[in-house]
Amino acid sequence: DLSALRVEEVQNVINAMQKILECPICLELIKEPVSTKCDHIFCKFCMLKLLNQKKGPSQCPLCKNDITKRSLQESTRFSQLVEELLKIICAFQLDTGLEYANSYNFAKKENNSPEHLKDEVSIIQSMGYRNRAKRLLQSEPENPSLQETSLSVQLSNLGTVRTLRTKQRIQPQRTSVYIELGSDSSEDTVNKATYCSVGDQELLQITPQGTRDEISLDSAKKAACEFSETDVTNTEHHQPSNNDLNTTEKRAAERHPEKYQGSSVSNLHVEPCGTNTHASSLQHENSSLLLTKDRMNVEKAEF
């Protein structure tokens, strides 16, 4: 173990290094160091905050020279020094078990990766560091076993998940096959086929009936047209017969005018059967003409 005197000496050296690497504005270890034209180094955030307070150039807090945003430059070497100082402080805390008085939040800088452990060898070769390295080497064999167990647990979990997924996939297939086998029997399929065939026959029977009705309507229309044509021909046949009657009536009127007047009046009210309204109107006109002729003949006879 380190003596108290040596611990104090190391602590004083760390404090001196820390004062050199402090920012003059925030009085902390410089984060993202930036250098000016006057070779003074500050935190990048502190300098941008200072420049944004005034429009135009501002003055350096140490030498009062003008500073602009374009004049600022990043210093990589200074950032490396800060990183190495942080590593020294971490090693000091691990070796002594004491917390550094002016320690900052170094938890963000710590890294437990194997590459980081290899890099620590180049920091300080001390008894405390050696003991700590031995402890780490002793704890390393235990870690692979834990990793193997965790991997086995994960693989077993994956296997159970896969088996569950396969079961879920197989179950719908089985149910679907069961439904297909038990849903419709052979008799049901035959009945469905016969039902479809009967429906098709009914459709075939319905369509000819409609065509037959249309044919019957067409035949009825044709018969009505033929009947009207026969009526017209009958009226045409009746007209010459009426003319013959008129000639006979004229002759009778010349011989017996008194008797014919009474008979002509009675004939006005008689309509021949089986004739249309057109034929009756023609008869009325003929009878009126005959009456006028008879009157003329009677007057001539009187004179």
Rank of each mutant, 00 (worst) to 15 (best):
L2I: 00
L2W: 07
L2N: 08
A4W: 11
L5C: 07
R6G: 07
R6C: 02
R6E: 07
R6S: 05
E8T: 08
E9H: 07
E9D: 04
V10S: 00
V10K: 00
Q11C: 13
N12K: 08
V13I: 02
V13A: 07
N15R: 14
A16L: 04
M17K: 00
Q18I: 10
Q18M: 03
Q18N: 02
Q18Y: 14
K19R: 06
K19L: 01
K19A: 01
I20S: 06
I20P: 00
I25K: 02
I25H: 00
I25G: 00
I25A: 01
E28P: 00
L29K: 01
L29C: 02
K31P: 05
K31L: 04
K31H: 12
E32Q: 03
P33M: 05
V34K: 00
S35M: 13
S35K: 05
S35H: 04
K37S: 15
K37F: 08
K37T: 11
K37A: 13
C38I: 00
D39C: 03
D39Y: 07
H40Y: 00
H40A: 01
I41H: 03
L48K: 02
L48R: 07
L50N: 03
L51Q: 02
L51G: 00
Q53L: 13
Q53I: 12
K55C: 11
K55W: 02
S58I: 02
C60W: 01
P61H: 01
L62I: 00
L62V: 02
C63K: 00
K64V: 01
N65A: 11
D66A: 08
D66K: 15
D66V: 10
I67A: 02
I67D: 00
T68N: 09
K69A: 11
K69E: 03
R70V: 11
S71N: 08
S71R: 01
S75L: 15
T76P: 15
R77W: 15
S79T: 14
L81Q: 05
E84G: 13
L85M: 12
K87Y: 02
K87W: 04
I89E: 01
I89K: 06
C90Y: 14
C90I: 04
Q93V: 02
Q93I: 00
D95E: 00
T96L: 01
Y100P: 09
F106V: 03
A107V: 08
K108W: 03
K108H: 15
K108V: 15
K108T: 00
K109R: 12
N112W: 08
N112E: 09
S113A: 09
S113F: 04
P114F: 12
K118S: 02
Q125W: 03
M127R: 02
G128N: 05
Y129V: 09
Y129P: 08
R130Y: 12
A133Q: 15
K134M: 01
K134T: 02
K134D: 15
R135H: 08
L136Q: 02
L136F: 12
L137A: 14
Q138M: 08
S139N: 13
E140C: 05
E140W: 06
E140G: 12
N143W: 11
P144A: 11
P144Q: 14
P144M: 04
Q147G: 15
Q147L: 12
E148K: 13
T149G: 12
S150Y: 06
S152G: 14
V153G: 08
V153H: 06
Q154M: 09
L155C: 10
L155N: 10
S156K: 14
S156P: 14
N157G: 07
N157W: 03
L158V: 12
L158A: 09
G159Q: 06
V161S: 09
T163M: 01
L164G: 10
L164K: 13
L164F: 14
L164C: 08
K167R: 07
K167F: 05
E180K: 15
S186I: 02
S186F: 11
D188E: 12
N191R: 02
G199F: 02
D200H: 04
Q201D: 15
Q201L: 12
E202V: 01
E202A: 13
L203K: 10
L204P: 14
L204S: 12
L204H: 06
I206K: 04
I206F: 13
P208Y: 12
Q209P: 05
R212C: 11
E214Q: 07
I215T: 08
S216V: 08
S216I: 12
S216Q: 08
L217P: 09
D218K: 09
D218A: 10
K221M: 09
K221V: 04
K222G: 15
A223T: 10
A223F: 06
A223L: 06
E226H: 15
F227V: 15
S228Y: 08
S228F: 02
E229C: 06
T230R: 14
V232D: 14
T233F: 11
S241G: 06
N242S: 02
N242V: 09
N243V: 05
N243R: 09
N243I: 05
L245V: 11
L245K: 03
L245M: 12
T247R: 12
T248S: 14
T248N: 10
E249L: 08
E249G: 13
A253C: 09
A253S: 04
A253V: 14
R255G: 13
H256D: 15
P257V: 05
E258P: 08
K259P: 01
K259T: 07
K259W: 14
Q261H: 08
G262D: 13
G262N: 09
G262S: 14
S263N: 10
S264N: 06
S264G: 11
V265R: 06
S266M: 06
N267C: 07
N267R: 11
L268G: 15
H269C: 04
E271Y: 01
P272K: 11
C273G: 07
C273R: 14
T275I: 03
N276L: 15
A279Q: 15
S280I: 08
S280C: 10
L282I: 11
H284Y: 07
H284D: 05
H284T: 01
E285L: 06
L289P: 06
L289H: 13
D294E: 03
R295V: 05
R295T: 10
N297I: 03
V298F: 15
E299P: 11
